[in-house]
Structures are given as C-alpha cells and as structure tokens.
Amino acid sequence: MNNAIEIKDLIKKYDDKFTLKVPKLTITKGTIVGLIGENGAGKTTLIKCLLGIINKYEGQIKIFSKEEKEEYLAKEDIGVVLDNMFFPDILKPKDISIIMHDIYKTWDKNLFYNYLQKFNISPQTQIKKLSTGTKKKLEIATALSHKPKLLILDEPTSGLDPVVRREILDLFLEYMQNPENTILLSTHITTDLEHIADYIIFINKGNIILNATRDEILDNYGILKCGEQEFNTIAKEDIISYQKNRYDYQILVKDKKNMQKKYKNFIIDNITLEDLMVLKIKGANNERIN
C-alpha cells in the first residue's frame, strides 16, 4: 500500500456552472503534495470530498486503500486543518485535549501540551481570545497530536505572518521525517511550496491542469521575455501561454535549457509558481500540460 490517497473518476457538480472533475489522482505515501489554484478553482471542494464533508459525488476515493464505507477507520489516521472550521471558540485548549482524548485512540495529551508550550499558547485561554496566527497554530497542534499518518490541510498558513509561516513549515518538515507520513496541503502562498513540496497539483476551474514534481516544474519551465517584434519570431509550438504587457511580452516555455539554446539572445528567466499560475490562468493561448 504505497498510496495515501487514490482518486478515480471523481465528478462533483454544483448547480451553478461549477464542476470538479478528477479522472485520476494518486498521492504517494511519504510525500508533501501542494495543491494550488485560484479561489473557487476547486481546491476546497476536492479536500471536502476527500474528507467526506461533501459526500454526494460520482467516482471513487480511497484513503490508505480503504473506501468511503470504511471511512471511519481511515479517519483515525488523518489529521485535519480546515479554513475557519474548528471547535466552538468559547472552549479552551485544555478542553480540546479532554474532548479529543475520547475521540482518537492515539491522542497524546503530553504531545499536545508540548506543542502548546512551544507555541506559547495558554491552555486556559478561550480560543476566541487568540490571535489568528495563534489560533492556526492551535489547529495544527491539534491535528498533529493524535499522530496521524496523513495531514490534509486547507490553507494552513493563510493570514499568517512570514515568521509564523516559517515556524509552521519547519513543523511540517519535522513531521515528514517519518517516511510513513504524508501531507496534502492547499495554499495560495506558493512560495511556501516552492521549497518543500515534492509534488505540485494545479487546479483551475475544476480541472487538474498540472500534476508534476516540483523539480519538473521549476527546473523545466521558464519565462521568455521579449518585445513585440521579437515575439513574432517565436515558434508557435514553443509558446505554452503568454501575457502581453505594456512594454514586454512574457511567454511561458517548457524545457528551459533547449529553449535558451534555440533563442540564444533572449532572456529566459526562472519561473516561480506564482508566475506559472498567473500565466496559465490569465495568459492567452492556454494548453493543457501533461
């Protein structure tokens, strides 16, 4: 059982013109997978389907090779952080431990309190009195304290300042020291993923338009920058997508090394995930990669 998650032929239709379609998606054990895309692209929908929050869909989802009907078993091993969905905020961290103790067989009270101490969270303070960043840290501490094998996180670092974000990413890296662990996280903050993600999945308008390793994407793709006249000299099949700006054209190209050889005098910059997103979503001449 090498796969943490397997999705086949998933289709979720919302009445108002939005459909999530995932014909095939596999998430390997021991990897960090980043899910990127615009707001409303389908990231949260996908996560909700995985977790059973949305349960009316076509297709098959297996977590740790267990299908939906046996979902109860798989959930012992899943740690979850969602966007603004948590315990009633008049409760306190110490209440969380009391409650979770009866919910998860593997809840580790000492581990939880260690995290609280590490993050400077008082067990006696009501959740509603915590700052956004601290609240997120609490949610993450809660997710980690029952020692899950899979972390599913929806925007775990949104609203956090860079220092806190770095702390949390280091936490995830520590979690991944165990090769049995897997992380699936959705985020807008693509810089977080550029370093630590093993795989990047790009969702746009309900479809997965890119699913590759971080290296394949960042080492391979590039942005060719040139003026209008030069733009016309670029071969059409080399242009994956482009954006026309006031003073330049920015073209998404693949196979940076060969492109640089072919277009010797042109500037081909390295790409960031943000550039990739923008060019793929807003650029002209879009193609499906894969």
Partner: peptide, 16 residues
C-alpha cells in the same frame, strides 16, 4: 529526509 528538512527542500530533489 533529514537533509531535505535542514535545507528546506523537497525530498524528491535530494533523492535525485
């Protein structure tokens, strides 16, 4: 894995 963590890079990159 520990190198990946210390350098803050993807595990697959180090593996390569």
């Amino acid at each position: 894995r520990s190198l990946a963590k210390d350098l803050r890079i993807s595990v697959l990159t180090i593996k390569k």
